[in-house]
């Protein structure tokens, strides 16, 4: 559709932080992002290094693994969503993990992830998560016990041509 940007134009400006303790997985995600047009990819093998990168680099999207040591990805998400500790509690976070059980998805949602993607992932799935983050970000919700993206939209992850009610946004 006219006015919509192809990936190789839009993604050149995105700065992505990739957090995964498995170097091979980081390599695969980087290759896919590069093919989309995104070359500004920062890598961290653990949460501590991720926070150190975030303190000096302007990052637009975080893609993080869950199972890492000594601090796991879920704790990283909770830290980043804490407005008292985080410099950008609204930053979009994609949880990319081999955990696939619905209970895990709920746990990640309750920690404040923006999108959830199960490994092994496909390029198309990653593209969909990134485009929905840019095109139709979730509102944020603050309650006594939660701060993060509105959890009611978590399963509605794909915004294809059939969903155009927000085309004017």
């Amino acid at each position: 559709m006219a006015g919509e940007l192809p990936a190789d134009i839009a993604f050149t400006k995105l700065r992505v932080l990739l957090v995964d303790d498995n170097a091979a997985m980081r390599g695969l995600v980087r290759a896919v992002l590069g093919a989309f047009g995104c070359d500004n990819v920062f890598e961290a093998a653990d949460a501590k290094r991720a926070l150190s990168i975030l303190s000096v680099e302007q990052i637009d999207v975080i893609i993080t693994d869950w199972k890492m040591a000594p601090v796991d990805g879920l704790a990283l998400v909770r830290h980043l969503r804490n407005p008292e500790k985080s410099s950008n509690p609204f930053i979009p976070i994609v949880m990319l993990t081999a955990y696939a059980e619905p209970s895990r998805v709920r746990e990640a949602r309750d920690a404040g992830v923006t999108e959830f993607l199960v490994k092994p992932f496909s390029a198309e799935q990653l593209y969909k998560r990134l485009q929905v983050i840019v095109n139709r970000p979730r509102p944020f919700v603050r309650t006594k016990v939660f701060f993060g993206p509105d959890r009611r939209r978590l399963n509605n992850e794909y915004e294809g041509p059939e969903r155009r009610e927000d085309a004017a946004l």
Binding site: E4, F11, D60
Partner: peptide
């Protein structure tokens, strides 16, 4: 920042990634 709305699907980008 990216300059507007991203195409909801971009088969060429997916093909490049694959």
């Amino acid at each position: 920042k990216v300059g507007g709305r991203i195409a909801p699907a971009d088969p060429a980008a997916i093909a490049r990634a694959e």
